[in-house]
Each structure stands twice: as C-alpha cells, then as structure tokens.
Write a protein that binds this DNA or RNA. Structure first.
Ligand SMILES: [Mn+2]
Ligand SMILES: [Mn+2]
Ligand SMILES: [Mn+2]
Ligand SMILES: [Mn+2]
Lengths: 219, 219
DNA sequence: CTAATAAGTTAGATTATACTAACAAAATAT
DNA sequence: ATATTTTGTTAGTATAATCTAACTTATTAG
C-alpha cells in the first residue's frame, strides 16, 4: 500500500529525475515545501519498500518499480487534466490543483472510463505525454526553446515545469500548444529571443520563459 | 480545517441521525468499522471544534454547523454519483466507492461545474435528495414500503440504506427508481409483500428488502 | 588547501489517527 | 432487585508524517 503522501514524493522524484536521471533531498524538499529531514526519512522508507535507491549522501533514484508507480500516478494526473479540459470545460490553467487531488483516487474503473471517453489520448492539455497503463511514457524528442538558433521554425509542444503564472502569461500572449514560432533573433546579453507567430510579427520572450518551452523543430 | 477522516465521521453521524435525530458511539463504530474508543475521542475532538454536541453517556447530535458541514460533504458525494452515472456511463451500483473518495476533494469549482453540467439535479441516482450549496436538504415525505397497505400504489423513490448487494438484487429484479408498484398482498407471518410492477404480475419482496425501499404513494 | 557555506543526517518532540486492556455506567434479563 | 450484558470511557501504546536543533559530510570560494 502506497499512501497519498508517499505518492506525492514518488511523483516529485519522478519529475525531478525526468531529465537528469537523479535528484537530491534538497530539491524534493523545495518542490514539496517539506523540510529536509522529513524528506530524508521518507526516502529511507520508500527505499525499504523497494521504490527508491537510497544511499547516504548519494543522489536519489527511483527503482524500476518506483518509476512505474510514479508514472501511473502521473498518468492519472494527466488523464484527469485532459478530462477536466475536454469534457468539463475547464481552462488549461485551472485544472492542475484539482488533478493534484484526483490523481490519488483508487479506482481503476474510474480512470479507464476517463481514458475511454477521451479516446485514449497520448498527451495532456499542457502537451506532456500521458504514460500508458503499464507506466510507460512515450519518450518524445522535444527540445527547449532556449536551445534553438536564429531562423529555426518550431512548434510549441509542451511547457515544463508549468506554473499557473506561466500558463496565464502564455495565454495573455496568445501562445498555445501547437503554435508555430519563427526565431527572428537572439539577444546575446540576456539570451532573450525575438519570435514571430500568428498575428504577432515580433514578440520578445525572456530566457526564463524560453527555458520552460518544449518545442519540436519543423524539419 | 476538517480532515478527510473527520469528514467521514461527520457524514456517518449525519446519516445515522437523519431519521432519529441522534446516534450512539456504538452505531458510528459499527458503521465505520472503527473501535469505540477511537470514535469516542473523535467525538470529543469534533465537539471541541463546535461540530458535535458531546456529553458523557448521552446520545450524540450534530450542531447546526456540523449538520451543514456534513450535508455539504453529502452534497459532493451525491453530485458525484449522479455525474458518474449520467455523464460517464457507470451503473448505479458501481459509483458509491468512487464517490466515497471524491467527496473529499477540495474544489468548489469542480463541484459547481458538475452541478451545472447535470442541470442542477435535486436527487442522486439512488433517489436520495442532494442538499443545496448551503447544506439544506429538501426534506421529502417518502415512506418505507413496509409501512404500506394492501392495494396501495406507490413509486419507488429511494433506497436507504443502499448496499452494493441490495442494488444488485434490485437490478436483477428489474426494480428501478421510478418503478410503480402495486401491493397485492401482505403475508402476516413474515411481513413479506407481494407486488406487481412492469412485466411482473407477482413478485415477493421480503421484509428485509421492503424496510429499505422508500416510496411515494400515488395520490 | 583551508575556511566558509550548503546539503544531508540523526535525535528527539509533536500531532493525528488508530488500537487494546481495564474500568464505569446504563440497559436488559431473570 | 440483583445479575448479566452491552455500551461508553479512560489510560496507555503504536504508526505515519511532520517539525526543530544539532551534528556530519560535501561543495564552493578565497
Ligand atoms: Mn498538472
Ligand atoms: Mn497530489
Ligand atoms: Mn453513495
Ligand atoms: Mn468518504
């Protein structure tokens, strides 16, 4: 049995780990706003349960089993967000807090039904992939916008990490998933990028923003 | 702040209290399958919080505030059951366990949206009334089937208490909410009742069953 | 290469929720 | 009216999840 609390730790570790493969007690502590000694004991407990590789002073990793459990929670989270947007009419910046709670519901039938009603989607409303029912995440080859060059033409695929503030900022700028961006120039001083898209012939995006936008280059 | 655990106690007390106005530590203990000393301390705690009237060796009652809080949780439970049946295609005997969890979600918007999508229903799929957003339960004048007389014609409105087993039994007998029953005879020995409804010209219902069926007499 | 800072760990306390054992009060049966 | 049974309460224990204070190890800056 994995408690709701433990599930939140597994998910945090999974997300922190997603790009780098490992994470620290300190990072989890900051993300969950829980003090380091608490995180430390929890990591030991999850290690006892075979979900985390824990060794003193070493970076943390999920075991295969831990990875699967985490991915299945993330699957529930993203299916829920998708359902709230597609079937209930919520805006994409309103669904995260609700999904944060519903992801802990124990009912395979409930999520199977959602999946079915949604037509078995593979990405959530923020463009992040939805793991399958075995916890396997279709790994995409998206890149961050701040790694692109002048002249590149790309499609906005996902936002990571996606805070409520960021999503509202993007909405205000008419930046939606699927939007095609052309990179006009890159300012060397602060790495801000000037792009054009839709009606906008010239918009400046700070490096803080471009570091969170995952895009797919258009061949 | 009311915890999920506390919410379940409040709801149990509300439901036990619904007809009689009061309930005992022992009844809550049985219903929640939690030992009496635990229930006892929880009642004291809820009393501290102003939600329960507690006096040693006296029956338990909810305060007005406690009644409202409980009704609002029951509102979330019943809206959820309604949503699962009407919008997601679950059968009425599959939704209770899911609603038991979703009733604890903290998100006014989520339940407001459900309510709206359902067209502001006033009864759940079992026919029980849904309290309004102020926790006021439209009190119905349904009566139990075992209080009816031979010759009465009634409509099945609700099932209380409704166990999974009972709902399956009713499904198998084609007894649905809204079904009109004619009482043909009452067996004095065991109080079983013979009724006709739909295609069935003669069906026998035991007193165990008739004691749970709430009906509205037809004029 | 030390000295200072940051990160990780251990120890001990706290709160919420549960339990068992033992006792007290109330209800029921004889 | 007393004995028995049921219900309610108290006391003490356990586990999960959190914290602060103090200490240790690792990293970073001079
Ligand atoms: Mn989310
Ligand atoms: Mn969560
Ligand atoms: Mn129910
Ligand atoms: Mn519940």
């Amino acid at each position: 049995m994995i408690s709701q609390t433990e599930e939140n730790y597994l998910k945090a570790l999974y997300n922190l780990t997603y790009l780098k493969g490992e994470a620290s007690v300190n990072e989890i502590s900051k993300r969950l706003e829980i003090k380091m000694p608490t995180v430390n004991s929890m990591m030991k407990k999850l290690s006892e349960k075979g979900l985390v590789h824990y060794e003193s002073y070493k970076p943390l990793k999920l075991t295969e089993e831990g990875k699967k459990e985490a991915a299945l929670i993330i699957r529930k989270h993203r299916l829920t967000e998708m359902y709230l947007v597609e079937k209930m009419g919520f805006a994409w910046d309103e669904v995260h807090q609700i999904a944060e709670q519903i992801e802990h519901i124990h009912s395979p039938e409930f999520f199977t039904k959602m999946d079915q009603l949604l037509g078995y989607p593979t990405v959530d409303p923020h463009g992040s992939p939805i793991p399958d029912h075995n916890g396997v995440m279709r790994s995409e080859s998206y890149i961050f916008l701040d790694t692109c060059k002048t002249g590149d033409v790309v499609t906005l695929m996902a936002v990571q990490p996606s805070s409520k503030e960021l999503l509202q900022y993007l909405s205000a700028k008419d930046l939606e998933l699927g939007t095609t961006l052309t990179i006009l120039s890159i300012e060397p001083f602060d790495n801000s990028i000037t792009v054009s898209y839709g009606d906008r012939t010239s918009a400046v995006l700070s490096s803080k923003v471009t570091a969170t936008l995952l895009v797919r280059p258009i061949s």
